[in-house]
């Protein structure tokens, strides 16, 4: 009796192992494409050299850049049947860290028409306690006295600033109510209809820092050299910087 039970049991167990192995191979062989989104940060057409380069904003104010960072989350692609692929990860794009400027995701095969992403960190991740990875609070993008992520950060020196050492500092955040700075950004993928991605879809996006000052609202360094908390100013700045992206190139191979 005992022996019989064992036989059945181990038989079932064997079947299980077999199924698991089978499904694993099936998964790894599933057809998918690599989606690579590369962010290239610029001031107009100039590349960014942290600390050392001097740029001029649309008001003629001179500035340098010491820190330039922003979060990209919930990257989605929609195909010609209107079906989205979902990904809820967050990525911190940090000008100081070249590797951070490239996002790699695996997405199913498809004829994709539009790319979407959230500029910032999904509000749910702002209210659910300690996170890790790109959202680790030690990344210097988290407010401790007013819980929430700094969605985008731009810091440097400007002779137009009257703050200590001519610093200017924009820490833009706020995920609730009327001061919510989260922005959904989307782009048509122009050649979508004849896209036949096989292995890799690479989307090169530029981000122009000079849009921060006046893309929608005029924000001069001389008037506002620091924005450090959620509110109307932060919201205005986010309206501006949400216009900083352009698709530069799409590569299919």
């Amino acid at each position: 009796m005992m022996k019989h039970n064992l036989k059945i049991f181990s038989g079932i167990y064997f079947l299980f192992t077999f199924l698991i192995v089978l499904s694993n191979t099936a998964l790894s062989q599933q057809k998918g494409i690599n989606l690579k989104v590369i962010f290239e940060n610029k001031v107009k057409s100039d590349s960014i050299i942290l600390y050392d380069s001097i740029y001029t904003n649309p008001f003629g104010e001179k500035y340098s850049i010491n820190k330039f960072r922003y979060y990209i989350s919930n990257v989605r692609l929609v195909n010609n049947q209107g079906v989205f692929t979902k990904n809820t990860a967050s990525f911190l794009i940090d000008e100081a860290d070249p590797q951070s400027k490239e996002i790699n995701l695996k997405v199913p095969m498809g004829h994709y028409k539009r790319l979407y992403f959230l500029l910032g960190v999904d509000s749910s991740k702002n209210v659910s306690g300690a996170q890790d990875g790109a959202l680790d609070p030690t990344k210097d993008m988290f407010w401790t006295w007013n819980t929430g992520y700094v969605m985008a950060k731009l810091e440097g020196i400007s002779t137009s600033s009257s703050l200590v050492n001519n610093k200017y500092e924009y820490h833009i955040g706020g995920f609730e109510g009327k001061y919510n700075v989260l922005k959904e950004i989307s782009f048509d993928l122009p050649e979508a209809d004849d896209l036949k991605p096989i292995n890799q879809l690479t989307i090169l996006i530029t981000a122009d820092v000079n849009e921060w000052w006046n893309a929608v609202h005029e924000i001069k360094i001389i008037q506002h050299a620091a924005i450090n908390s959620p509110g109307a100013l932060a919201l205005a700045m986010s309206d501006n910087y949400s216009k900083m992206f352009r698709i530069k190139k799409i590569i299919i191979n």
Partner: peptide
């Protein structure tokens, strides 16, 4: 907190452990 600025018990200690806007160095 007295002003309700902290929305989750897990992230509360970041506040005493660090200064505002100067995250990271202490925690690390």
């Amino acid at each position: 907190h007295w002003d309700g600025g902290v929305n989750h018990i897990e992230v509360q200690p970041l506040s005493p452990l660090t200064a505002p806007n100067e995250m990271a160095e202490n925690i690390d």
